[in-house]
Amino acid sequence: MRIATHGLTKIYDKKYQALDQLTFNVDLNGIFSVIGRNGAGKTTLIRILSTELLPTSGTAFVNNLDVVKDATALRNEIAVVPQEARPLPWLTPLQTVRSYLMWRGYSYRESKERSKDALRSLGLENLEKVKNRKLSGGQKRKLMVATVIASEAPIIFLDEPTTGLDYVSRKEMWEILSRLKKDRLIILTTHYLEEAEILGDRIMILDKGKLADIGSIDELRSKIKFPYVLRIMSDNVDINEDGVEIKRVSNRQTLVYGTASKIYNLVPYLVTNKIKFTVEQASLGNIFEQYVGEEDGGDKNEKEDW
């Protein structure tokens, strides 16, 4: 499936620019993770692609359907869990999924069977008649995912589906999404870079409404200046190597960023001085920092979490 935009721009209230001439064209399958700082334009992009929001200018296509001109046809192909979407507290999980399916046009009977299947696949079958207000945060998030996967839509948009969940609940959600991606395209925004790295078959980095880059984790890593990280278990080391970046972190560790050859030049010194160390490939967090910087570059126009 293909997603393409050309000059996609969104300006809220004629002054808040969320997307700035965003242009990309990418074939996708599995999970497509969209990452960026607060106000980078992730939610705006998802909302435009899922036909919730009209762009100010430019074009966007999902599966070769124009999100503006072909919105009606596209809506048969997509299902969305918006950011901050919550199940209605007065319904049960079964009623929640079932009503969504009926809004999509399923019959009363068919929707019941599909709802039960979806709840079962996410391990919520024992809660199907409990009021939603009694569910935990993790169960509510799972229910929202169950709601959209119960449909036939081959493209699922999930806007920050794990925000606010504890680590265990997030890992459960990752397992669910990993299963789902076998037969759906999942477009996911997240603030958790670890999540984007683990799940994302392709990752898009947005920075202040513009495309910083797009690719697999290996492709992104291959483009950055420092693709390796040397983690030294000491904050008292004497390193004089050009072409590396050294950062001392609080827990008595020193991180050295560099290329493979630069990093391995330092290994004899560490071995000789019996200093413990590990060598890692740059994580998505490291990659992200190198693309968008660490300073507080939050958009001054920031209106909300775009």
């Binding site: 036909t51 048969n76 901050e84 979407a85 919550r86 209605l88 809004w103 999509r104």
Partner: peptide
């Protein structure tokens, strides 16, 4: 506004 239901419905085949 509180449940974001309209966003889910807008993106569905319901007019």
């Amino acid at each position: 506004n509180d449940m974001r239901l309209q966003d889910m419905i807008v993106s569905s085949p319901t007019t």
